[in-house]
Amino acid sequence: MPAMSDILLRVGRLNYVWTNTESLLIYIIAHLLKVEKDAAIIVFLTLNTTRARIDLVERLAKLSSTPAEDSRAVLALMTRLKRESKMRNKYNHCIYSFDENGEISSTQLMRLVEDDRHVKYGKVEQLDLREIERLENSIKEIVEISKALWIFIRASPSFHDEL
């Protein structure tokens, strides 16, 4: 079982790479809306959830006024980002369970799942070496998404003066 400090370090890294990567959506919003970075920052900060920001970017990318190449690139990147958001959401919205030694042994999701007759909450998942590997892979993928976003941003002529 990984030590608590190792897990918390990884969760911290996950949040760090996520926040840096999500902030790049400002440039994507500016590009797709054809506005200055300041206006895109206002739009970005007005939308107070990751989901809303990604939804906006996807919808803008789908507009007929968006060049097909830009649309394909942005939608592919948003698909990857949404996939990794599941890991980020898990570790930002869970409760940690501890073993007899005080080490984190599992996560419990704080989410309701209901059907016609039952309400369930708190899916428990073991925090074993396999899960740590998935966490590490998610961190690496978010870094790769960030790099790909930067490549897209730098290729946009509208940002050459601002970068």
Rank of each mutant, 00 (worst) to 15 (best):
K37E: 12
L127A: 00
A39T: 15
G12E: 01
G12F: 10
L8A: 04
S23K: 09
L14E: 11
N137H: 11
Y121Q: 12
L75R: 07
I142C: 13
G122H: 00
H118Q: 04
A61F: 03
M110L: 14
I153S: 08
S5Q: 07
I42E: 10
V17Y: 11
A155M: 14
A155N: 15
I95S: 13
H93E: 07
R83V: 10
L77H: 08
I139S: 02
I145H: 05
D161I: 00
T21R: 04
F152G: 05
E36T: 02
A3L: 13
E114A: 07
L81C: 11
D116A: 14
K82N: 15
T79Q: 06
H93C: 06
Y91S: 01
A40H: 14
D128E: 05
A39S: 14
F98M: 11
M87L: 12
V11S: 07
H160Q: 10
E100T: 12
S158W: 12
V74A: 07
L24T: 12
E100V: 04
V17K: 02
R130V: 13
S97G: 09
Q126M: 07
N137Q: 15
D161H: 09
F44Y: 15
M87D: 02
K86G: 10
K120H: 13
L25P: 02
A52V: 06
L75E: 03
S146E: 09
T21H: 06
L60K: 04
T19R: 09
K86D: 10
E100D: 13
I29C: 05
E36G: 07
L45A: 13
T50I: 12
H93N: 11
G12Y: 03
E103H: 06
D55P: 00
Y91G: 06
K123Y: 10
S23Q: 14
A155K: 15
P157D: 05
R51Q: 15
M1H: 09
T66Y: 00
L8V: 01
K147V: 00
K123L: 06
T66K: 01
S138V: 02
S146R: 12
D6N: 08
E162D: 12
E36V: 07
E144N: 11
D6T: 11
T107A: 06
S23N: 11
L14G: 09
F44I: 00
C94T: 02
N48G: 13
E58N: 04
K86W: 08
V57C: 15
L127S: 02
V113I: 10
P67T: 01
A3Q: 12
R134T: 08
A61R: 01
M87I: 11
Y96Q: 05
T49E: 03
D70T: 07
K120Q: 11
K120G: 10
I151V: 12
T21P: 05
I153C: 03
I28R: 03
E162R: 08
R51G: 04
L77Q: 09
E136N: 15
Y16S: 14
V43T: 09
K90C: 00
